[in-house]
Design a binder for these strands. Structure first.
Lengths: 218, 218
DNA sequence: ACCTGAACACCGTTCAAGT
DNA sequence: ACCTGAACACCGTTCAAGT
């Protein structure tokens, strides 16, 4: 017996809930937001909401999946020359949004570590981004932009880890440093990826990146 | 009027509570642990507990402060030659403990981003570690172990960000990669810090680090 | 001064009852 | 089929009452 007879309505309700929940989570955080608040924002009763999401965790899981997809699209159509600029852009936007988004990301991290099944879904969500990064790094190596002796898979993991680590630290412990974070991250990525002949130790003048305005969940 | 007449008792109660809470948080996570559980583990009533910690958040704050101190001591008495080994050691231990500790760290991150006052305390807690890192990097530069053209302050921030980012990612999305994480992190840190003349792009044979057994909160 | 434990307002979730 | 909203068990926190 079908739980929902009208798939279109169901899909509409789901996105209605997700949108409401995202707004609430950004305002007050995952654990601080009550289901009642989400219900009010979505304009429906608890009973109705639980018809579409069996738990509060399932809501943040869905949001996180949508975000992974959005992040992947952000770097989907760029060339290897733009890679570092786009990553720095992403980091700067993330830090600028700061308190609005980051706590939710940390909540998702905690949930992901705790729930192995969610971790599997998350890995699947990030896989396309990893593949893309590997492709871009390989391209960059062919062009001579990146160090040809790097193992692309490994370099991709480096890039992921450093971008996430640096931005999270910056949001978590804001200081005067926040202003130069983007420039420092660029220098870091250059030092990691650039051919060894290129001098990248000294601070590097930051080219004004062409800001691509982009609708992102996070 | 003094809130506590017996400072010794108060200190004993506080550590009694912290120890109980740490056990609970590691078992089930911050948000999943109820105050009743902590009370039971600490062997006292809610009223008694709230005498020493005015809120649940204050408990995790205290735990986090103790951890920052422990981490700082971990690298307090080492030379610049050992730096990378110790950092990789730390990362490997953290990943090994995995699900037991990491979710709590993520919870602390979320809380730190949300609460600016907590962020200030956290920055203060990490400051000695940053100072130490700068000192070790400067030493390494003098010895020729590290690239002399690096700005030590910046390099220290790089190291912090990369170690945290790589380890968190590894815990969050465990995979076959977990096995080689330590070796990859070592290569990453070497590429960041080593003099540019040294070839560090290829995988590097991992010297068996002398494991210093160490009692750490996290 | 220090502690107990019932009580308070509120949480995530369920389910009988409506349409 | 889809929704409402009262009800349930439980949460973090408080506070009158004990010693």
């Amino acid at each position: 017996v079908a739980r929902t007879a009208n798939p279109l309505l169901a899909e509409q309700r789901r996105s209605q809930i997700l949108e409401a929940a995202l707004t609430c989570f950004q305002k007050r955080g995952f654990h601080q937001t009550s289901m009642q608040e989400i219900c009010a924002a979505a304009g429906m009763s608890p009973g109705a909401l639980y018809r579409y999401f069996p738990s509060k965790t399932d809501i943040i899981t869905a949001i996180s999946a949508a975000d992974a997809q959005a992040r992947c699209q952000t770097i989907a159509k760029i060339s290897s020359e733009e890679l570092i600029d786009r990553l720095v852009d992403y980091a700067e936007r993330f830090v600028a949004k700061g308190k609005k988004f980051a706590p939710m990301i940390a909540d998702i991290m905690a949930e992901t570590i705790r729930d192995p099944e969610l971790a599997i879904r998350m890995r699947a969500g990030y896989a396309p981004m990893h593949t893309l990064l590997v492709k871009l790094i390989t391209q960059g190596q062919a062009r001579g932009t990146f160090d040809a002796s790097l193992e692309p898979e490994r370099a991709a993991r480096w890039v992921f880890g450093t971008v996430d680590g640096v931005t999270m630290r910056c949001v978590m412990l804001p200081s005067a440093y926040t202003r130069v974070m983007g420039e420092e991250l660029r220098a870091l990525l250059l030092r990691l990826l650039a051919p060894r002949g290129v001098a990248v130790a000294a601070p590097i003048a930051k080219p004004k990146p062409s800001r691509v305005p982009r609708k992102e969940t996070v």
